[in-house]
């Protein structure tokens, strides 16, 4: 019993939980708005690029493909370190949160572009023909006919990717952004206890479990349709 007590005291220390609760709530708030900014930037840019790609300009498409490939092939932490530690050498000093939002936003845009594009190419050719045959222009057919269907198809994989990249806001702790993990690490070194880490993990579960459950719901919703 002694061992279990010590374990509980180390990882689930109520006094420490109580003391760091306000800090942790502030960290949760930072994580949430960082994630929201990343999602807004990433999805908007990704959707725009996918639409642009459908016009079929060779040079433009090559640029989009290279961008999407780089965003998917490079580890985000590498980009974060280059921007945060490298750019000041050129006199460009970006804040930690800004670097995080830009890098993760671009990475999400790269994935989102590929997913939206896969959605667009999955829309049946007859849908385009029906739109064009009734006198709609290319852009009108894209916006009113193809895109609504493509976005619907894209939602399940997109939610998975949004979840994965939102979680990467934890990388902010490396460049001094005081989100959940940073708060937990700081508290851990002050208290010499593992309890803040437990608290951080619990905070992440509370923030992100709803998204995980959303992926399950979408999976079932779409499974029934088939």
């Amino acid at each position: 019993m002694d061992g279990l007590d010590r374990f509980l005291n180390t990882f689930f220390n109520g006094a420490i939980f109580a003391r760091y609760l306000p800090d942790m709530l502030a960290g949760v708030w930072v994580t949430i708005w960082l994630a929201a900014a990343v999602i807004a930037l990433g999805l908007t840019l990704g959707l725009l690029l996918a639409c642009l790609r459908s016009y079929g300009n060779r040079v433009v498409n090559l640029c989009i493909i290279v961008f999407a490939d780089l965003g998917r092939a490079l580890p985000p932490l590498v980009l974060i370190l280059i921007m945060y530690f490298g750019l000041p050498g050129l006199g460009v000093r970006l804040s930690g949160p800004l670097v995080l939002i830009l890098v993760l936003g671009f990475v999400l845009a790269a994935f989102a572009e590929e997913i939206f594009w896969a959605g667009l190419t999955s829309v049946a050719r007859g849908q385009w023909e029906a739109g064009r045959a009734t006198g709609l222009g290319f852009t009108q057919t894209l916006i009113h006919v193809a895109l609504p269907q493509a976005i619907r198809l894209a939602i399940p994989p997109l939610v998975n990717r949004v979840l994965a990249i939102s979680k990467m806001t934890a990388l902010g702790s490396v460049i001094g952004v005081s989100e959940i993990l940073a708060v937990a690490s700081t508290a851990q070194s002050f208290t010499g206890s593992a309890a803040p880490l437990t608290m951080g993990a619990i905070a992440y579960v509370i923030v992100f479990l709803p998204l995980v459950i959303l992926t399950r719901i979408l999976e079932h919703r779409y499974a029934w349709k088939v």
Binding site: L163, K167, M168, T169, A170, L171, S173, I180, L181, A184, S185, A194, L197, T198, G200, A201, Y204, V205, V207, F208, L209, L211, V212
Partner: peptide
Amino acid sequence: VLRAVPPLVLLIF
């Protein structure tokens, strides 16, 4: 739970 916790958090933990 593993999908909700960022890998970096799991690693630090």
